[in-house]
Design a protein around this nucleic acid. Sequence first.
DNA 1: GCATGATCC
DNA 2: CATGTCGATCATGCA
Length: 359
Amino acid sequence: ASDIFDLAGMTFNINSPKQLGNVLFEELKLPKSKTNASGGYSTSVDVLEKLKMYPIVDKILYYRTVSKLYSTYAQGLLSAISSDGRIHSKFKQTVTATGRISSTDPNLQNIPIRTEIGRKIRKAFIPEEGFTIVSGDYSQIELRILAHIAQDKNMIKAFLDNEDIHTSTAAKVFSIPLQEVTKEQRYAAKAVNFGIIYGISDYSLSQDINVSVKNAGKYIKDYLEHYSGVKEYMERIVKTAIENGYVKTIYGRRRYLPELSSPKHSVREFGKRVALNAPIQGSAADIMKIAMIKVYNELKTKKLKSRLILQVHDELVIETSIDEIEEVKSILLHNMRDSFELSVPLEIDLSQQNSLLKG
DNA sequence: GCATGATCC
DNA sequence: CATGTCGATCATGCA
């Protein structure tokens, strides 16, 4: 903080976006860009990332990272430890619009993993004596569901051939052999793959991967030419959503979309993105819930000591007795893999470690 | 109690 | 023409 005050030539509350915005954009006259809803200067990561070359901005980003980790995680999680030495989160079944479960008091579904300093938090979650942590992760479940729902021949083939889907997408979009795909091309293809799931626009993709809106538009166009089944799905799902007023998952659970009849264009566009995403995210949630029930029941029926302790949307975590590691891995593998039959296989990544931190 | 901005999938 | 990727929870500032 003192470094930041030195560079600013004054003291202020770094945690106040309002004060911070004034210091950066009025006092120091940095190039201003976005404003937030209340008319102030936005100081969000994506704005500050572009001003990283200013030492003060770089220090502010670091300050933000550390203070978030300290207040929400270091401090917050310590105060959540109960008398048995454990943290007992609450899982809610009826909160999300898509069918995912959520976690509160505290939220254990957003424990840091991205940054090195954040991973230190994860490392602090350890099993009791005689136990270890075994996890099973669905690999690319949402794209596999997209391939299945859209019945897209090219995407289904990529998964059947067990290709890296982002590399495979890059090869198709850039019309080059798999082996010649560069890191940058794979990164762009990955952003398009995720964007498609969320209901993409050329503008948001351009922001995401830092290319012009025009180029982003070309990527999307090329993508949909190679995945024509996806293109047809996008058109079909929006049409049926408007006709029915809802969309549904592979298990038939509905999400109603009143947004589609809003007088406001932006709200209707939001409704279309949701129409696209809800069947995908919701079906993944359905599949995971089926798997969870089966895993829980099998652990119970076999009277194993190991127990299911966490679900993070595409991942199940089991605190596993060390004499049950292989059996638990097998239980996770077959129950997660066989919980639903898609047109593509469901791949599961298994891991075992001595904390919530993998590797 | 709302807005902003952080964390995760 | 305006808009700006899904779904969540939590801490902090501030009216």
